[in-house]
Design a protein around this nucleic acid. Structure first.
Lengths: 151, 151
DNA sequence: TCCATCTAGTTACCATGATAACTATATGGA
DNA sequence: TCCATATAGTTATCATGGTAACTAGATGGA
C-alpha cells in the first residue's frame, strides 16, 4: 500500500534533486505513479473480494489450484512458492479456505510432512462466480487510467 | 501486496476468456503486471526503510512534513488526508515517530481537539540520510524493469 | 545403519493496514 | 443560548503480511 494522494509536482522533485543529485526525476515520477496506481487498484479489488468472502490471497490460491489442479493436487509449499508468500501465511489461509469448504487438505502419500491441497466443487464455483466482477473492475480501472499511465 | 511470481501466459488468459467473455485480455495483462511490479518495488523499499528505522508510512509522513512544514505545522488529520490513510493508523504512527524524536506533537492553538505535528531537526536528518538510498533503489529498479513495463 | 542436515508445516509473536465505538471539542440553527 | 450534529483523536479489535523457533519426517554421506 502506497498512499500519497497527490504526487509531488515536477518542481518539488527538481528542488530535491538539487540536494540529492543521485535522484533520477523520471524514474521517481514513474515509480510513484506505479505505486499509487497499484495501490488504488488493490483497494478496488480488495473491496470487491471482501464482498465475495475472498481476499487477494485466497483468490490467487483458488486461481492457482484451478489452473493446475487437473494434473495433480498441489503441495501447500508449492503454492506458497508460486505465490511468493511465506509458509505461515499459507497455513493460515488454506485452513480458512478449508473451513469455507473451498479446498480440501489431505496428506501427501509420498512425503509424510507434506499436505496437498485441491479445489472442491464449491471452491470452483466461488472462484467462477467472482471472476466476472473481477474482470469488470480491472477493465474499468485500466480504462479510466489509460492516460495517467506508467512509462 | 500482490504475489503470483509467474503471471499467466496469454494462452491461459485466452482459455479464461472463452468462459468469461467480459474479460479484456490486454487490461488483465497490464493490471497484473502493474500489481506485480509495484509489489516488488514495495518490497525493496520496505526492506530499505527497515534498515533506516523507517517504514513506508513513516517515511511519507516525514516527506509531507518536510515539504510543507515551513508555512505552518500540519494537523495530524491533514496529514492523514493527504496520505489517504485512516486516523487510527496516523495516531499510532506519529506517536512512534515522536518516541523516535523525529517529530514534535503539540496542541493546536485554535482547535482544542486537534494536534499539530512538526518535524524535528533529528527527523529531518533521518529523512535526508535516507533519501539517497531511496533514490538509488528507485533508479535501479526502474532501470532493470524498463522493458517489462506497464502499458 | 545412523546421525547431521534439510525441508514441510505449525505456533507464537510482531508490523501495519482497516473499522467501530468512544471522548472531547466545535459549530450552527431553533 | 442551547442542543443536535459534526469533527479530531484515541482505544479496542480485526485482517493479513512478516520472521523466529519449533516438531516431524526425509535424505545422504561416514
Amino acid at each position: 500500500m502506497f498512499f500519497l494522494k497527490s504526487l509531488p509536482t515536477r518542481n518539488v522533485l527538481i528542488e530535491y534533486k538539487k540536494r540529492f543529485p543521485n535522484m533520477d526525476i523520471e524514474a521517481v515520477e514513474s515509480a510513484l505513479n506505479l505505486l499509487r496506481q497499484a495501490s488504488l487498484l488493490e483497494r478496488h479489488l480488495d473491496a470487491y473480494f471482501s464482498t465475495q468472502g475472498l481476499s487477494q490471497l485466497r483468490f490467487l490460491i483458488l486461481i492457482v489450484l484451478d489452473r493446475e489442479n487437473r494434473k495433480a493436487s498441489l503441495k501447500s509449499s508449492d503454492i506458497a512458492d508460486r505465490l511468493d508468500i511465506s509458509r505461515p501465511v499459507m497455513t493460515r489461509t488454506i485452513q480458512a479456505l478449508e473451513k469455507a469448504k473451498a479446498v480440501r487438505i489431505s496428506e501427501d502419500e509420498f512425503d509424510g510432512r507434506a499436505k496437498v491441497v485441491s479445489l472442491t466443487d464449491c471452491g470452483r464455483s466461488i472462484l467462477y462466480n467472482s471472476l466476472p466482477g473481477y474482470y469488470d473492475i480491472i477493465r474499468d480501472f485500466m480504462e479510466r487510467n489509460r492516460d495517467s499511465t506508467v512509462s
